[in-house]
Design a protein around this nucleic acid. Structure first.
Length: 310
DNA sequence: GGTAGACCTGGACGC
DNA sequence: GCGTCCAGGTCTACC
């Protein structure tokens, strides 16, 4: 079963006096959120489970700032390496840790399922995200049609090549390089084309990412909206929805198929529709229900997810 | 609407 | 050391 972990605040000497605290919602668990999926292994995140410290380099205008993120009672503490206003910091932190996502409905449903009874205790339900939709879209494209090890390398190389000062690149940072250079230097393969097209579309205004990801849309409309982005198909759109805190769609990939087949169908071949039917009773929490089962099975085995850690 | 094949990389495997 | 095969999600062409 999933282990309970308590975040240890970093040593007092490493936290500058300018640290800001952001209150956390009831049931929030910092390590469980950070390790909710593989994003914490992707640049520019760096996570120390032992210290309970999440580090990340962020770009604020022309400044590059190192953030040291820890858990304190009832709040998240963010210590920047140089002064950053709370107004600049807050939207990024809230998105990164899904502080505005209400998962109480999922927790309530999990209380009535013996297999999911651990969820409330573990503080499971929020996913670690990038600080922008662009970052998450690029990372999702980098997870498609490849192994997790290659994804980690692609993102590492992309941040190193395009990101200014070690922060995750903005669209304008990516379009400084042509497709061939991104492919060769970041080992993106054919994904270089879609990542550059996404970046160029945003820079030119052809893609309005704020409009595409507008939270006022219904979940169905948002799903269709994400499908219009280059390189984003049904799997990617469902993943982006989950990062908005919407779990109506399950991101069907080879890992989902393997898990459901092996867990419920004795490894027999079965259609996607039949697999998805298994989670229909979870209503708007389908993806979290599946993901929690996969997550706990991995924690049980105390080893990285097979073939990946998305 | 459904299906097949290309896209690209790197690991595994056989020789 | 080299060549071949395979896995992986999206996109496009074709039926």
């Amino acid at each position: 079963m999933v282990r309970q972990r308590s975040a240890k605040p970093s040593s007092a000497g490493s936290i500058p006096a300018v640290a800001s605290n952001f209150p956390t919602p009831p049931g929030f668990d910092f390590p469980a959120t950070v390790e909710s999926h593989g994003w914490y292994r992707l640049a520019p995140f760096r996570w120390s489970r032992e210290e309970g410290i999440l580090r990340r380099r962020e770009r604020f205008g022309r400044r590059t700032v190192d953030l040291v993120i820890t858990s304190v009672p009832g709040a998240i503490s963010v210590a920047p390496s140089s002064p950053v206003s709370r107004a600049e910091l807050e939207p990024r932190i809230r998105r990164m840790l899904q502080l505005d996502v209400d998962v109480s409905g999922f927790v309530e449903m999990s209380r009535h399922s013996p297999a999911h009874a651990w969820i409330e205790r573990a503080g499971f339900g929020r996913l670690l995200c990038g600080t922008s939709v662009f970052e998450d879209a690029v990372k999702i494209i980098a997870t498609t049609n490849t192994t997790w090890g290659q994804t980690v390398r692609m993102v590492e190389l992309l941040v190193a090549k395009c990101g200014r000062g070690g922060a995750f690149p903005e669209p304008a940072d990516v379009v400084r390089f042509d497709e061939a250079e991104l492919q060769a230097d970041c080992r993106l393969g054919y994904r270089a084309k879609t990542i550059r097209a996404l970046s160029a579309g945003i820079v030119s205004g052809a893609i309005d990412l704020d409009a595409v990801s507008d939270a006022r849309q219904s979940t169905q409309d948002l799903f269709r909206s994400y499908l219009t982005l280059p390189g984003i198909g049904p799997y990617g759109a469902a993943h982006l929805l989950a990062m908005d805190g919407r779990h109506d769609f399950i991101a069907v990939d080879s890992e989902f198929r393997r898990f459901v087949r092996e867990t419920y169908h004795g490894s027999r071949r079965i259609s996607d529709v039949a697999m998805l039917r298994r989670y229909a009773r979870w209503g708007r929490w389908k993806y979290l229900a599946y993901w929690s089962e996969l997550w706990s099975s991995v924690a049980d085995r105390l080893q990285p997810m097979r073939g990946g850690d998305k």
